[in-house]
């Protein structure tokens, strides 16, 4: 990650230093057209098509990221020259037309750390478009995979366990299943409460991309840092990022009546406390409630998080392994709830 930030800084320095030939940059004509280029290089987002050297933009991370099979995610934002993003009063970050959110996925022990795939979320005049690209075997460019693909990989998770999975690069529709609000595509992570701009970026750089960078004050705890918040608040941050993109009244799981946003009442039945299964099928695991306070072993929310069976597992897309550390946090949260009547 540090390398990415350094490269961004270098590229910027180079551009502002009046170098004789500026590096080839982002092709805004392609970004803002309706095109779905077959090759990622058509966008000019990377220098020399090296996924570790963005040709422009500013890096960011998230306090609580969406779990995707233990991938390391390298994220940056490309915003066209002269335009800026703005943090709205409700903390939603508004990006101008021509913005590209770039997210590369990989593992440090797969392909020497080169990413397996890069996903683009492009703000076009008609709204956001999601495009998935898979890096070619020679690592020189990435190819559009509209229909998604399964890529066999073997990697070690932080606890040292080796996983051999058929990692699912999502298809274009699956991008939308998660990134959808009332039928329109929207970014998930970039909300002020969860968003960390590259800490190495200077104030000048921040102001170059954000109208009001001071408004980027993350309020959510870091899900795996006990110093940043209680078990309950960290569990809620985890649920917000990993579940609430579907589990909200305008999301893909609206019909479930289970709503897990940071802003939802964590004591309510719609947060899962004493909530009976709806359309859960085998996902109920023979249990009566999504969350049985004090009893994680009888909370089917945990059962679904700890499964990789497609008929049971939650989230429904984006995961072929169990996020043990995330599940452990939620188990602890439920175990510490007083056993109340439900």
């Amino acid at each position: 990650m540090r390398r990415v930030f350094a490269a961004v800084g270098a590229a910027l320095l180079c551009a502002s230093g009046g170098a004789a030939s500026p590096p080839p940059g982002v092709d805004q004509a392609v970004v803002e057209s309706d095109a779905m280029p077959a090759k990622l290089s058509a966008f000019g987002l990377f220098r020399g098509n090296d996924p570790q050297t963005p040709s422009t933009g500013i890096g960011y991370t998230l306090r609580a990221p969406l779990f995707s099979d233990y991938t390391d995610k390298h994220r940056f934002i490309s915003i066209p020259a002269g335009k800026k993003a703005k943090v709205a009063a409700d903390g939603v970050i508004e990006f101008p037309v021509g913005t590209v959110l770039v997210k590369s996925f990989g593992w440090s022990d797969v392909n020497d750390g080169r990413p397996v795939e890069t996903r683009l979320l492009i703000r076009r005049a008609g709204g956001w478009t999601a495009l998935p690209y898979i890096w070619d075997a020679d690592g020189k460019d990435a190819t559009l995979a509209l229909g998604g693909r399964r890529v066999p990989v073997t990697f070690k998770s932080p606890d040292g366990e080796t996983h051999s999975i058929r990692y699912a690069v999502p298809n274009k529709n699956q991008c939308k299943e998660c990134h959808s609000l009332a039928g329109e595509i929207v970014p998930i992570g970039p909300k002020a409460r969860n968003f960390i701009l590259d800490p190495a970026a200077s104030d000048t750089l921040r102001s170059l991309y954000f109208e009001n960078p001071a408004a980027l004050k993350p309020t959510m705890p870091v899900w795996d840092d006990p110093k940043s918040g209680s078990v309950a608040t960290r569990a809620r941050a985890y649920l917000d990022v990993n579940c609430a993109h579907c589990h909200n009244p305008a999301g893909s799981a609206s019909n479930s009546g289970l709503f897990l946003r940071w802003t939802d009442d964590p004591a309510g039945v719609n947060y899962g406390i004493g909530k009976r299964p709806t359309a859960a099928g085998r996902g109920s695991g023979g249990m009566d409630f999504a969350i049985a306070p004090g009893d994680p072993a009888h909370s089917f929310l945990i059962y679904r998080l700890e499964s990789t069976d497609p008929g049971i597992a939650m989230p429904e897309v984006g995961r072929s392994t169990v996020h043990k550390e995330g599940a452990a946090l939620l188990r602890q949260w439920i175990a510490e709830m007083p056993k109340a009547s439900h």
Binding site: E177, P310, E316
Partner: peptide, 12 residues
């Protein structure tokens, strides 16, 4: 042999 997704076909 399904490995992923909550259904066979989803229409939205």
């Amino acid at each position: 042999g399904q490995q992923g997704a909550g259904e066979g076909l989803l229409v939205t």
